[in-house]
Each structure stands twice: as C-alpha cells, then as structure tokens.
Design a protein around this nucleic acid. Structure first.
Lengths: 224, 224
DNA sequence: TATAATTGTGATAATTTAGTGATAGACATG
DNA sequence: CATGTCTATCACTAAATTATCACAATTATA
C-alpha cells in the first residue's frame, strides 16, 4: 500500500484528495504547510508527496529542497493557474509532475498513479549493457553469459532468446511475439520452435532454468 | 472526432456548451433531462458526458447510475454552488470531474480535454496497466494475479475471464456477451460453460470470490 | 406451499498444451 | 568431403485445461 503526503493549506483540497486517494487504497497523511511537512517527513517515509506551491510560512519549492536533502521522494506540485508555472520547468529539483488548480481529482489520481508506476519500475528501464541477477551475469557487449563466474556456452539463438526474455523480464511474451522479435518478421515457421529453444536454453541455464517460466496458453517469460 | 453528450434542462447552457465544443471540433448531442439522456445513450455511444446534477424528472446521479449499468463513459458534473453533499455521491459513482455553476465555458472545455486525454491514453495502455483493488492486483503485463501479495494460480480461461470482468467492472454482462468476448465469436458451446468457469474463478479468488456477483436472469458482473 | 426457473457445483471425458528426445537438413570449418 | 554445430520440425507423452452433464441448491413465481 502506497503512502501519500498531502501538503496544502486549504483544508477543502486536502479533504478531496484524501477522499479519492483513500478510495484508491492509498494511505494518506496531511500537512498544512511546509514546516509541518518537513517535520512529518522526519518521522515517516512516503512513496509520493503532493504539494501546493503557495503556502504560508514555507513555500513548496523550499520545502521540497529541504526534504530532498535527506530523502528522494517523487513529488507532484499543485500550482494555481499561471502562477509560478514557468518556474516548474526550470526547476533544478526534479519535480515529477505538476497539476494546475483547480484540478480534477480523478486526473490528480491518475498522475499520482503514473508517477508511482514510473518511479517504482525505474530499474526496469535501465538499459544497461550488463544484466546481473544473483550469480548470473549477461555481458551484452561481449555476448557472454556467466553463471557463478563460469562462462556458459550458448548457441546464438539461445543467447538472443535469453537476452530478449531478460530485457522484457516479468512480461508474459507470446510465442508469436518472441518469434517476431528474436527470429524476425520474415520467419514463417512453427510456433513450437520457440518451445524447443526454450528447452535448450533452460538446459543451458542450469540452476537458473526455472527463471524461464511457462505462461500457459500464452508463451513464456523471464521472472526475476 | 470526439462525441459529447450534454445533459441540462436549461437551454441556454446547452447552447453555450454546444457552441464552444463545436468550435473545438467535438460532435455535440443534447439531452434535456436524465430520462432523455438514458434513451439517447441506448442508441449512441459517447466519449464523454457533461451533465447537470439538478434536473427535473431524473437527477444527474441517478442518470449516471443507470447509464453506467451498460457503459463506462467518463462524466463531468455541473453543480450549483453550495451543493456539497453531491461530491461524496459523485466520487462513489466515479465522476471524473466537477464544474461549479456558473462556470466559464473555457474552463469547462479545458476540463473536458483533460478528462478525455486521460481516459483515451488509458485505453491505449489498458493492457499494460495494472488493476489494483485492495489486496488484489492484476499485472496485465506479467499476466499474474496477486492476492495479499501471493501469486494465485489461474488457468488461461480463468485469467481472461477475470480480466474481462474487471475491465467491465460494475457492468452486468450476459453469458452470451462473455462467451463472445472471452471465448470468441466462433465458440458454439453451451451458455452454462460460463457458469462453470465462474465457479472455478471464484474458487481461485479466495476471499474475493464474492466480487463476482451473479446477476440473475442475465449473467455476471465484477462489483468493485 | 408447490412448482418452475435459474444457478451452483462435483465428476469426468475430451481436448488442448507444453516438455522432450530424435532426426534431418543447413551451414561452416578444416 | 568429412565433421561438428546449429536449427527447425516432428512425434510422442504427460499434464493441464476445458466443456459438458447430472444433480443439488437457490430463487422466483403461481
């Protein structure tokens, strides 16, 4: 369950956000201004902060700056129409999104969801040249795979298949899609060819053979 | 081109909205009250509905409730200033936004655009989206369902059936429609096959088995 | 209440699907 | 050309899934 900190001096706004966010299964904590938010953040951790820019005592930007000194939490800013708008673009602390007041509560929720799913799956999109999982390493530059620091021998197809599965880990891939992506769109062979190569790849992967999971009625996926 | 249904008993308001919306390239259809709106919705599909709350014969909330029985169309509500009570109602019904009367037509248009761009991009990524309800999550990319963070085992048909019900949540679906959508139009088996799969799906869903509600004389629905 | 209609469910047979060993052709190499 | 490697397909098996039926349970109706 995700935990949201809502920072706004208007009670009505806090209430509306709380209502919708609670409904969607979030845990909501309120703060009435920046000072309050900083204090609360010292005690608790949040998955995301929704914060007004214009607030008494301490404005949203300064508050974020302060909080970010110790914690890297995604932030959605609320800003009045026109006001401060341009500041957001040049803002050196990475604001994840902004919503202009008056906003649609459902839209705000959609953005919160979007930011969370984006930040929570950030590591997925890291397109690195190396993939490391426990004792398995794939060196995509050298086209080599190591298990327990031992180089394992893979045929070209096995290697390509493995890389494709790993790059799309945790995604169920149909045989058709696998054929298209690994074999190419001009391959007109059987579906089941994939099965055979999965079989061989599994054998090559030794103790990691079960990382390749069968998705019945569909295809396969690499499960991390 | 998007199609809007405008429901308001005041002709002047309908006219203003029509003018602005037409100008922005929308196709506009009018309804003078809730009954009218329901009738029109049976004949046509819309991308969004803009509806007054206070109307003779049938108020906005009841109208939406009725329309949502068969269609999941985004809704923006028009409410007179001070009508506080309805916000709670609305959020249970999944109202996408509110605009308080008297409103600026420009603002209304901005909100219409916002809601549409959100819901339409959602459609695109629907298959990549996750559905979360309390302790149940459906990972449509990974084709997995978790309850209490435990992966639950579903057969392909169970999974597809669940996804279909959830995507059309709160809508009563006939056996025939379910067969057509989940089994495909080329399936010529019994109606009751659905029943059996509902049974198995319910068993798999454990504590959420009652989310799948029997609609007597009709079929089933997933009730959120 | 009795009766009819509808839905729930256990059992099971039929069907579908995936795992796998064998095999033949393709291809490259020496 | 002989050899070894890689690849795609096939055939067979085991296992999982599915559709149907029969009867029980429930709900609606007369």
């Amino acid at each position: 369950m995700y935990k949201i900190l809502v920072v706004d001096d208007e009670e009505k706004i806090r209430e509306v956000i709380r209502e919708y966010a609670t409904f969607e299964g979030y845990e909501v904590v309120d703060a009435i201004d920046g000072m309050d938010a900083i204090k609360i953040c010292k005690e608790q951790d949040f998955d995301i902060i929704v914060m007004d820019i214009m607030m008494p005592r301490l404005d949203g930007f300064s508050t974020i700056k302060e909080i970010r000194k110790t914690k890297n939490i995604p932030v959605i800013m609320l800003s009045a129409r026109g006001e401060e708008y341009d500041k957001l673009f040049g803002f050196e602390l990475g604001i994840d999104d902004y919503v202009v007041k008056p906003f649609s509560p459902k839209e705000l929720m959609a953005r919160i969801n979007a930011v969370l799913s984006r930040t929570k799956t950030n590591d997925k999109t890291k397109k690195e040249n190396n993939y490391v999982y426990e004792d398995m390493q794939i060196d995509m530059l050298g086209r080599v795979v190591y298990i327990d620091n031992e180089k394992i021998e893979l045929t070209p197809k096995e290697y390509e298949l493995l890389v494709y599965l790993v790059v799309n880990k945790n995604i169920a891939l149909s045989r058709e899609k696998i054929l298209n992506e690994v074999w190419g769109y001009d391959f007109y062979g059987e579906d089941r060819t994939v099965d055979t190569h999965i079989k061989m790849l599994r054998n090559s992967l030794g103790k990691y053979r079960d990382k390749i999971v069968t998705v019945r009625g569909m295809g396969y996926k690499f499960e991390e």
